[in-house]
Design a protein around this nucleic acid. Structure first.
Length: 122
DNA sequence: ACAGTGACAACAT
DNA sequence: TATGTTGCCACTG
């Protein structure tokens, strides 16, 4: 698998329980401010890897869009599953799949922390 | 090599 | 506020 995917997964794994971040923020943390779509693409790729515990453990549900919503492009089932997972860890999700970024946004990693986790990946 | 495809985001109406 | 448009970028066949 490509390095970019792995970098995305590494960052997402660092999101604490009960916190969320956005596709765009993940992209910026990785030094690619305009690769937000690619971040979503990478998370979508997790569907094919659920048999591997290392990938199954990636908390993809903690990534939402810049409007603070669960991506509407998801099929209803997937979106609801994401909402369920968030609710299960104390993140309030409204009927419209809206989440309070103000309350739950993750500060993210410093550039030093980013370098560290990427170093671990090679 | 290359055109098509998204779990996006910023801007313009 | 709510749509619609456009730029993006990594991946795929």
């Amino acid at each position: 698998m490509s390095n970019f995917y792995e970098q995305v997964y590494a960052v997402v794994r660092a999101i604490p329980k009960g916190k969320v971040t956005t596709y765009g923020r993940v992209a910026r943390m990785l030094g690619r401010p305009r690769a937000s779509r690619a971040v979503g693409y990478a998370l979508n790729g997790l569907k094919d890897k659920q048999h591997d515990p290392a990938y199954a453990a990636v908390p993809w549900h903690r990534v939402i869009n810049a409007q603070g919503r669960i991506s509407a492009v998801n099929r209803e089932l997937s979106a609801n599953r994401q909402a369920q997972r968030l609710l299960a860890e104390g993140v309030h999700v409204s009927d419209g799949l809206q989440i309070s970024l103000k309350k739950h946004i993750w500060d993210g990693l410093s550039i030093f922390e980013i370098e560290e986790i990427l170093e671990n990946k090679g």
